[in-house]
């Protein structure tokens, strides 16, 4: 493995770990406690919107970090 690819490997690992930690922060108290039952956007509960947005954000971020891992269907059978 040359330097460059090992560097991007380490970068990727760092990014993934940071995503995990950010998710851990946003999906836990006290962040969750910010939205009480009275908070709503339109008539939709604030908590519902908050969790959905963070969730989708996490999915997009992981997609972005992993976008160059090909994962194409492999034609060759494993040994």
């Amino acid at each position: 493995m040359n330097n460059r690819s090992s560097r991007t490997q380490n970068d990727r690992k760092g990014r993934l770990i940071s995503l995990f930690l950010i998710g851990l922060l946003f999906f836990n108290f006290p962040m969750l406690g910010i939205f009480g039952k009275e908070d709503k956007w339109g008539s939709i509960p604030g908590l519902f919107i908050y969790i959905a947005v963070v969730w989708i954000g996490l999915v997009l971020a992981v997609y972005w970090v992993m976008r160059d891992i090909s994962g194409r269907p492999d034609k060759t059978p494993p040994p």
């Binding site: 959905a52 999915v59 992981v62 992993m66 994962g71």
Partner: peptide, 17 residues
């Protein structure tokens, strides 16, 4: 193939969502 993890890492959370 371990490469499959690359996509599963975001498809699976999307499925759960």
């Amino acid at each position: 193939s371990t490469d499959h993890i690359g996509r599963a890492a975001w498809i699976f959370p999307l499925y759960l969502f």
